[in-house]
Design a protein around this nucleic acid. Structure first.
Lengths: 334, 334
DNA sequence: CTGAAAGCGCTAACAG
DNA sequence: CTGTTAGCGCTTTCAG
């Protein structure tokens, strides 16, 4: 069942069917009704590929997710997918773990003829306006490293200031009297947000004249279990530790469980901070203090921006959203 | 830059380029190398739409997610997306909340020329082999209602026995001495897995001659907050309650927090069971007892089955995977 | 307002 | 082994 069949059954030309399909105004109401009726009766659905092949306007939006499919991205994804679909676009999700995020992005755009892409995570430090000049695709980078600071004119970004957010967390711990603060990062090699949060940690220590100790830096692999295991091992050796800052809530939960199992009372014997602002951390007992990222807003604004970019209603922009330090029973003064 | 350009530059015909692209064997090594070089030098990437338009073999696999993008689905999605991409397929993700899951599925298949679909969630009770006879798309339903029991010959499914799993949980609570057991469901209207778990709850009570009390059934909307609020309200009225079974871990966390805030000691004053087997529940303090679904396995097996269905290596099948009751400090005998 | 016809970029006969 | 060519189903001029 294709457009030709419909045209034949409805006794009109294919172009008329096409016009009806695309909501062009210059079709007689009567004809439109007839065509619509035939379409409905035959359950006809236009072939997307043919349409995309022909049009420059493919209505394809890609979502490129880098690395682990963490719950934080999932929440953004939820918002984004709703927005993209409501706007009548097709959403193509690609998940990768390649070295070169830029090449992956470029390939994705060409292959799928994307009109727009939202990248969740990844490292785009080497991205330049020259590279982007070759393509006319709208690009919004979400939650990526500080490429945003380069003020590229041919792409947009929505992010938070990771270094400052991390600084805020560590500073808060220090102001609560903590000096021996462990840091739970994800992977050892991380040139993206992990690195920036690492630097925020170091800076906060330095500003308070607290010496930095490499042994206090742990890598939990962004999973509960990793964080749990590393914390157990760590606290057995470093008994002077009074606080641990994990750069994701999921790891914070692992840290919390580890301290509890070691006999610490969370909040009293040890303070724990997370990062992201996930529900399950807020509803932990005690509530895990965290740096809350505006997840919903990040999703909403990235779709908004992308759609406005596509319709020419907006210019490329680099938007920094504010985070909020959410206090919780897991963090107390000493 | 298209196939014709490449052919011209490489001084060969388009079909040769096409053959190289598709790994056909009958190309002279020398020619292949030449073409490959030109492709690489020009950063040529074939247009997917044209390929899909032409081929029956579109290499498009759709993932249709129904309802909330919960963390449980996200985990499956992670596994699935990796599998689909490794097999060289394009993954098109669609997220919907329509009434009619079957029509949505059918439309999705036609529009995107899908060769296979994996449905996460949804209600396919009205699905029949007659409807499926019209399409030649491989379909794997994952985590859906008991349509699986109808033994459709033209689609597959991977699921757990929700009623029995729920029965197992409630039975466990009862055997631990609990008689006044609250049930935290998601939405009031639910003809899918929610209903089956509801029935498992009722059946367990009945088998132990415990009267069913409609007031003990709560609806938390599959969110921490909803579960939290409803539990607070509930426990203020029904002080005789000694256990609550939530049909998702995320809600169990909300329930746990509520009981803690009301001054209950979890595990001692009240027992809590979850469902799914998510990390953050296991790492809760105390660990939340749960019915662990084989998430990883569900993802893996659905991709496997789908790919084998596509290559003719497997027949449609309805697979029930086993769940496991994981004990935890949140549940104790009284 | 409507129809005929030219491709979009690719694959796969088919012919060499 | 390789090139020529006919469409895949659709949109979009261009004529009516």
């Amino acid at each position: 069942m294709n457009i030709k069949d419909i045209a034949q059954i409805a006794n009109v030309g294919v172009s008329t069917v096409s016009r009806v399909l695309n909501g062009h105004p210059d079709v007689k109401d009567e004809t439109r009704a007839k065509v619509l009726a035939v379409i409905k009766k035959n359950n006809y659905i236009p072939n997307n590929s043919a349409r995309v092949l022909k049009q420059t306007n493919t209505r394809n939006i890609g979502i490129l997710v880098k690395g682990v499919f963490n719950p934080f991205f999932s929440e953004i994804l939820k918002t984004v997918s709703t927005g993209v679909e409501n706007a009548g676009y097709t959403m193509i999700l690609q998940h990768h773990n390649n070295e070169n995020d830029i090449d992956t992005l470029l390939g994705f755009i060409k292959e799928k003829k994307l009109q727009g892409v939202i990248c969740l995570g990844g490292n785009f430090l080497d991205l330049t306006d020259e590279v982007l000049a070759e393509i006319s695709t709208a690009i919004v980078l979400v939650s990526v490293d500080s490429v945003t600071r380069k003020n590229l004119k041919r792409c947009s970004s929505i992010s938070i200031d990771n270094q400052q957010a991390s600084y805020m967390a560590v500073n808060y711990l220090i102001n609560n009297g903590h000096h021996e603060i462990g840091l739970m990062l994800g992977e050892v090699v991380d040139f993206g947000i992990g690195k920036e949060r690492y630097e925020g940690y170091k800076k906060a220590l330095a500003d308070h004249h607290i010496p930095f100790n490499e042994k206090y830096v742990l890598y939990g692999g962004f999973e509960c279990k990793g964080a749990y295991d590393k914390t157990i091992e760590f606290l057995k050796k470093e008994k002077q530790i009074t606080a641990i800052f994990a750069i994701s809530d999921i790891m914070a939960v692992g840290v919390a469980k580890a301290t509890a199992n070691l006999g610490y009372t969370i909040g009293k014997d040890i303070s724990i901070m997370g990062f992201d602002g996930m529900d399950f951390a807020t509803y932990y007992e005690p509530s895990i203090a965290t740096i809350k990222q505006p997840k919903q807003d990040m999703g909403l604004r990235s779709v908004d921006l992308l759609l406005n970019l596509l319709s020419g209603k907006a210019e490329n922009a680099h938007i920094f959203l504010d985070v909020k330090l959410v206090e919780g029973g897991s963090c107390q003064s000493i």
